[in-house]
Nucleic acid binder design. Structure first.
Lengths: 289, 289
DNA sequence: TTGAAAGCGCTAACAC
DNA sequence: GTGTTAGCGCTTTCAA
């Protein structure tokens, strides 16, 4: 094990109390002693035992993040950036980030239980909020601090960060209506995800304002991957009555749909309109001519 | 705070020692007492304070993972799957996974220092090994347990998990030579990455066996992204003497190069050969006709 | 300005 | 089989 305040205390001939105070920059330590202690500490390569500190202070300085892995959304660049953002900010604030990856279901809830009951984290971040979210129910029941990325279905009993998918989709609807599209299709994610319905509703309502009806058969559920976008896009484009616009609920599916269109000799942006949602980095290479 | 063994001890009228022993399933506790204690514990919703346990046992049951974020390799599906694999396995083994995201450089090393000196982790996983790797030097110097994903430059002073990129590229070289390609190009990642050189050497040596010389001007450094593959691929395809094959060091760059080829009216798999490396999931949608 | 002592929740020698 | 005691490394009253 490493150097402890006890070792420092012995070396400088002071009590561990004084050492602790000096180290924590209390002002009831003489400048001289403080200086001596600080120097000795550095010299001896001291660094505090996190667990001892946390046990004593009864806090963890740790944020929990359980990543749901069931759909490949996990490997979405959007998600990676989210993780990087959370990771960097946590580190900057001096918080540890405790990450688990679990598939939705019992194991997932069990992981939350362990984090909470074992006092391992001060709070958690819930990502990929679902319409009916067992994780959130559990946290709410246990009055445990958390922030969700995405709202659940209209409820606001907790803190969240979210984008306005409903409004965003309306903008898209307006844009497409302005381009005189009549048959418009939509690629949605797993309907269980909270943002799925919001975006779909936004599109539906937005189109309705322009007198366009979004037909059920032109709505396809995918899993947010490029592959899914390609497959569903292909299916849509092979319909007798082909849609003239494809609205994808995320960028990755939009890319997939673009591939499908190109494969059929369609020029994206001219013969067909395809929209995404996220603004991920690699979009540039897919900008239509 | 939650229930402690003290609370249980009081309730069942036993010493905390006995409670601790019962909870840890020692066999010097009478079955009756053990049963009573276990039931009471469950009833009271007891779960051990992880920090107290760790402080006492002097272990952390935690693995550290510092993700380098400087290049977008981070949002590579390949990398996401790696993370999911590490995350799931850690959880299964009862280990916490402490994740930081830092750009290579001083902050990164500082983060390692903090993890190690603060006794926060039992060991770390080093990912995206570099040819000259300050992280590994630091860990080696401090004799701290770690495993690297990828070897450094030929050295084997530590444990690692790695693929045989040299051999893999030779297979590719053989394949391309068999297709009678003469001008072959290569898209590499940042040369600072350990696997970069291995793969390039494998390709170079493999081609040499078939009497093909891999020319320097046909080797382009990118950053492993699709965008990078697109840009470098475009540059290569716009050369007067256009290569008939593009060997990308990862799948994402290969996809980018494919887009570049398609944009120029080339049919991938017929007019030009393009190879990747990784076997990421979404590859399917890019299978040439 | 400093130190002694208690205690965070737990485990583990050592007695009885 | 059970309890007493010490101690992991640290912070924080309370006295001096």
């Amino acid at each position: 094990m490493g150097v402890s305040i006890k070792d420092i205390a012995k070396k400088v001939n002071r009590s561990i109390t004084t050492v602790s105070r000096a180290l924590n920059d209390y002002d009831d330590v003489s400048p001289k002693t403080k200086k001596l202690i600080l120097e000795t500490a550095k010299e001896m390569g001291y660094s505090p035992n996190t667990f001892a500190q946390r046990l004593q202070k009864q806090i963890t300085e740790t944020i929990g993040l359980v990543i749901p892995t069931f759909s490949p959304r996990f490997s979405d660049p959007f998600f990676s950036e989210l993780l990087a953002g959370i990771g960097n900010k946590s580190a900057d604030l001096g918080f540890d980030l405790l990450v688990s990856t679990r598939s939705p279901g019992l194991d997932e809830i069990k992981t939350y239980k362990e984090l909470i009951d074992g006092h391992r984290v001060d709070g958690v971040i819930v990502v990929r909020t679902r319409k009916q979210d067992a994780r959130i129910e559990y946290l709410l029941e246990n009055k445990f601090p958390f922030v969700a990325f995405g709202r659940t279905n209209g409820e606001e009993r907790f803190s969240y960060v979210d984008e306005d998918g409903y409004y965003g989709m309306q903008l898209i609807a307006d844009h497409l209506a302005g381009l005189n599209h009549r048959i418009i299709s939509c690629l949605t994610p797993d309907p269980m995800l909270a943002f799925s319905q919001k975006r779909l509703n936004g599109l539906r309502d937005g189109l309705a304002k322009s007198g366009i009806h979004l037909q059920e058969k032109y709505i396809k559920n995918g899993d947010l991957t490029q592959k899914s976008g390609y497959e569903l896009g292909s299916a849509l484009l092979d319909l007798k009555e082909r849609p003239s616009a494809i609205v994808a609920c995320n960028d990755l599916m939009a890319f997939g749909a673009m591939s499908a269109a190109q494969e059929r000799g369609l020029e994206v942006g001219k013969d067909i309109s395809i929209t995404g949602f996220d603004d991920i980095r690699c979009r540039n290479i897919h900008i239509p001519p």
